[in-house]
Simulated scan of single mutants.
Amino acid sequence: MRTIDETISVSSQITPAELTEIARAGFRAIVNNRPDEEEPGQPSGDAIRTVAETLGLSYHAIPVTHAGFSMPQVEAMRGALEGAGGPVFAFCRSGTRSTNLWALAEASRGTDPDTLVGKAANAGYDISSIRPMLDALSGQA
């Protein structure tokens, strides 16, 4: 798990069994940025959703493929972040897609792209490849 800021942490694929610890750590929502069956043996989104909801966590499936990001995905991530009522735990294969989607959602709220790039870098993610999108979404293009 890598903490980007007090509102979100990201990681690689999680299992349903790990959700108890995630809930104990104070997270309020889970965001799954992986499409089902991306890799053999990957837990299904439904399996993770069932356990998350049993633990009182909200669950959002916003799958991102290698085709890139769309505005509906950005808007869904923004909604998940705004409605979480506390810290969000997002995951994908490596945490990169989750970090990128978080940054795009935050840029759409007007957050400064330099701030987003810095937070991502502090967590070990280079999001410079999406900088033009961050600038455009934040109104700084």
Rank of each mutant, 00 (worst) to 15 (best):
R2Q: 15
R2W: 10
T3Q: 13
T3H: 10
I4D: 12
E6T: 12
T7F: 08
S9Y: 01
S9L: 04
S9F: 02
S11V: 01
S11I: 05
Q13G: 00
Q13M: 00
P16N: 02
A17M: 14
E18D: 07
E18H: 02
L19W: 05
E21M: 01
E21D: 13
I22F: 06
R24M: 08
R24W: 07
R24N: 15
R24L: 07
G26M: 07
G26Q: 00
F27G: 01
R28Y: 09
A29Y: 00
A29N: 05
A29G: 03
I30D: 05
I30R: 06
V31A: 06
N33C: 07
N33V: 10
R34D: 08
P35F: 09
D36T: 05
D36L: 02
E37H: 11
E38C: 13
P40Q: 09
P40N: 13
G41E: 14
Q42L: 10
Q42V: 06
Q42I: 13
G45L: 02
A47L: 15
A47T: 07
I48M: 09
I48K: 03
R49D: 05
R49K: 15
V51Q: 08
V51C: 05
G56A: 03
G56T: 06
L57R: 04
S58K: 12
Y59G: 03
H60M: 12
A61N: 00
I62P: 13
V64A: 05
V64P: 03
H66G: 08
A67G: 14
G68V: 11
G68K: 07
S70L: 01
M71Y: 12
M71E: 12
M71H: 14
P72N: 09
P72R: 04
Q73F: 04
V74D: 00
V74Q: 03
E75M: 07
A76N: 04
A76G: 01
M77L: 09
G79Q: 02
G79Y: 06
G79A: 10
G79F: 10
A80Q: 12
L81W: 04
G83L: 03
G83K: 05
G86Q: 10
V88P: 03
V88A: 04
A90Q: 03
A90T: 08
A90S: 15
F91I: 07
C92Q: 01
C92S: 11
S94I: 04
T96M: 08
R97E: 05
N100S: 06
W102Y: 02
W102F: 01
A103T: 06
L104V: 13
L104T: 09
A105G: 09
A105S: 00
A105L: 14
E106M: 12
A107V: 11
S108A: 11
R109F: 02
G110F: 10
T111I: 10
P113E: 06
D114S: 07
D114Y: 01
D114K: 07
D114E: 12
D114W: 09
D114T: 14
L116A: 11
L116W: 08
A121F: 08
N122G: 12
A123D: 14
G124W: 06
G124H: 09
G124A: 14
D126K: 02
D126H: 10
D126N: 13
I127E: 12
S128D: 13
S129T: 13
I130N: 07
M133K: 11
M133N: 07
M133W: 04
A136E: 15
S138P: 03
S138F: 03
S138N: 12
S138T: 01
G139K: 11
Q140C: 03
A141M: 02
